[in-house]
Nucleic acid binder design. Structure first.
Lengths: 200, 200, 200, 200
DNA sequence: AATGAATGAGTATTCATTCAT
DNA sequence: TATGAATGAATACTCATTCAT
């Protein structure tokens, strides 16, 4: 067998890329992608390194251990989601716009892309077991309710937030996903009476 | 002292336990316990076998592979939950009793024991990735809505079911878990208007 | 989950077939098929039992161990091959017919079906390591040379037999398999001079 | 006695042998030895690692999977055999020397050492089933015929090569191995007529 | 600062064989 | 007599992490 033939069997080395200042950052994004694709269980150092085209040793150089990386990845995910929802709330002026923003938040941000939902479920599961990640989950809820409090009372915000949660879960795992119309009807049923007595 | 006598003196090694007709069934229960304790990722053949005090080879004798075991375990979990909820609904006579049964279902069956919640989250996460387990999730939803339809229209049942889902998730992962009073208030806010126009 | 759904996951039991007098015989044939399909290494009790639709316990009931089964299977294979070749030689009257019978034996019996060749290679490999199976190999050679001695001297028979062997191996593993014409030319080149001085 | 002194007294555990730059290469050789000793089926990661005094994890670090290792091992084997035969052919000047080189190649290189034959049989068997290894087999044949074409026409080379193959198989598996004299007689019977009309 | 090599613990799964029924 | 249940040893392979360079 000639050396060139041998090379076909062994993975080709495409590297020697020493300078890569944003690698750490890029690895966190890659980690999220891998979690979405294969779950937390499938998000191994090896898999993430391969996906990011980075040497394996680089993983533990940048992150003390997997838990740290998970923490960073899910933090970023939650921040992104929370910020996006806050923009929707912030841009709403009237109560009716706020209602519709909730509907759009559910339909556009979650029901559309299964990737977001998968990440959320992975976070639920892991948060139930690891306190560090549970904190992230709680920050998300607080941020979410904070956004809702731009238009609703604290108590109502909590209820609405829970409702959003439920609609998303149901909407994504049900045999036939909820339509935008169904989501809108559900949101209205809960929030219409609230609007009458809303925060002034 | 004959060898057999000697064996009697030696600390019982729990072996030679050849006949064990309900082992398969017991293993499914053990699997659920292990999933609750360590997650799907931690529910390995070894761990379940150790917990059930059964030789490792016994696992793959009884279950073709891990997915089959997961399927059986989560099926049992879902059946138990669905049956319990159906009893609550069935025992309710008036709409007001049905409302309260929903509240009790949330508070007693889920918020009380974190184990049930953890199992649910694990199921969400794994259902989002494996079609076989997604089916279970969907059967659960259908069963749940079927129970609710004893007292509510199909459309309302779907909304209420989603709301229950959200209250449970929020209730269990929030910094301070929801109290029974808060849950009751939330349920009433959604279902009170429904009762007026309810199924006759 | 209903029982019927569960059955889909667990292998269906198609049995309770107690009376099966030729089972042992059938198992030997099945073993040969499995060896041809998956090699000696892939011919496990489980695989053969599955292929023959027979309970696993039946394997060790009929055969003391795998070596015995291998012995019986390869014996049958060799007997079949040897008998077939002997018929070819026996039916040849003239030296020219014997020559052509050799050609046909190579082309029709081996080069055509890769299954026979695979079984032969598996036998070579295993015979080189296990004395019991080496005996079978030697019986085959003797039978083969005995058949050839109907038309050639003992010394020539041995040479011709080796040549047949080589043509078969080359013919079956080469990039482009030998054609019937090439085989005929090769056989003639070796045996034509022999015919002149042949056994009278 | 300090712990470190204690360690010095304990029998060397051959560990902490971190740096071993030619390990991969050595493992390929060890693999060949194990295949020769126990067959492809017996050439397990564990066995090869033990034989090479290397930790088990080292095997899958160096080779993506067993097939890759088999490929590399048999490639090396075939290269060695082919090179050795080519030297014999290259060193022959006259046709008569070439004839004798063929004889010596058979007798010295194969009939003498059963290890080489066993490796060849294992390769046949595995080549019949795995396309990747079949390629190796074909490269071997091509190399072999290329060497023969230093002295014979392409057509004759193919026939002679097949004949060599058969003589080796027969010679090694027969009840009483062929003698050098018998091999020489056989080779002469086939090649003498060829020499008269040989390549000029 | 960065990484290729290395490793021990662990993974699901397969297996020949035993044995109580 | 025949077999389903059982099991300990073994298999290929993956992994997070360590560490010498």
């Amino acid at each position: 067998m000639t050396p060139s033939q041998l090379a076909a069997t062994t993975p080709t080395k495409t590297r020697n890329r020493r300078f890569d200042p944003e690698r750490r950052d890029r690895l966190i994004d890659t980690a999220l992608n891998v979690i979405a694709a294969k779950g937390v269980a499938g998000a191994t150092h090896r898999e993430i390194a391969r996906e990011a085209d980075v040497p394996l040793g680089s993983m533990t150089y940048h992150f003390a251990n997997m838990d740290e990386l998970l923490y960073l990845a899910f933090s970023r995910f939650v921040e992104t989601c929370a910020a996006r929802f806050d923009v929707r709330m912030q841009q709403s002026q009237t109560p009716e716009q706020a209602q519709e923003a909730v509907v759009q938040g559910i339909v556009k941000d979650y029901l559309g892309t299964s990737e977001e939902m998968i990440l959320a479920y992975e976070l639920y599961a892991v948060a139930a077991r690891k306190p560090l990640l549970r904190e992230i989950m709680q920050q998300w809820m607080e941020a979410s309710q904070h956004s809702l409090q731009r238009h609703f009372t604290a108590d109502d915000a909590r209820i609405i937030d829970a409702f959003i949660e439920g609609l998303i879960v149901h909407g994504s795992l049900a045999v036939e996903p909820m339509t935008e119309g169904e989501v809108r009807a559900a949101v209205h049923r809960l929030t219409d009476p609230l609007l009458l007595q809303r925060k002034q």
